[in-house]
């Protein structure tokens, strides 16, 4: 049965038309709304490459039933910096060499933003645990963890933490 519903994505109301009932938010974002920043890989919640914020919480878009999300605020990687200027997290990833093939990067950037919003000064263990749902097959994680720690340090020294 074809479905018709609205989603609020990155602050904009979007219409989803001719969708199938069981479609995941990941599928709808990429294939119906053309937002290709969110990546799909495992489609079973194991890899984290489809991480987005749903009402402010980090979730795997592949495990979210899109048709049940009307009225919720969805933020994708395209929405973390509406101006198009890199966020401090994105810049830190570049500077730390935390981006190699880049496939996991959008999900990890979302996870890093989510962590630093809640925990402005995370320990190494907290960073590792919070990023445990995002698989990277290139970096070996050292540079990723370094990038997140760098952002926390700079934010705290600049007093720009939003907490």
């Amino acid at each position: 049965m074809a479905e018709f519903y609205g989603l609020r994505v990155n602050g904009t109301n979007r219409e989803v038309v001719d969708a199938q009932l069981g479609e995941s938010l990941l599928f709808v974002l990429r294939e119906r709304l053309g937002l290709l920043g969110t990546k799909g890989a495992c489609e079973q919640g194991e890899c984290g490459s489809c991480s987005v914020l749903l009402d402010g919480e980090l979730v795997c878009a592949c495990l979210v039933l899109a048709a049940a999300q009307s009225g919720r605020e969805i933020i994708t990687i395209e929405g973390v910096s509406p101006s198009g200027v890199s966020t401090d997290v994105q810049q830190a990833f570049v500077e730390a060499g935390a981006v190699q093939c880049g496939f996991c990067t959008p999900g990890l950037v979302m996870a890093a933003h989510s962590l630093l919003e809640r925990v402005p000064n995370p320990t190494d263990t907290e960073i590792r645990e919070e990023l445990s749902g995002n698989i990277c097959r290139c970096t070996g994680y050292g540079r990723l963890i370094q990038a997140v720690a760098d952002v926390a340090r700079v934010r705290l020294s600049n007093g720009v933490s939003r907490d």
Binding site: L58, S114, G133
Partner: peptide, 9 residues
């Protein structure tokens, strides 16, 4: 259980 992403939902 799973990861932070799984435990949130």
């Amino acid at each position: 259980v799973g990861s932070p992403q799984i435990r949130h939902v």
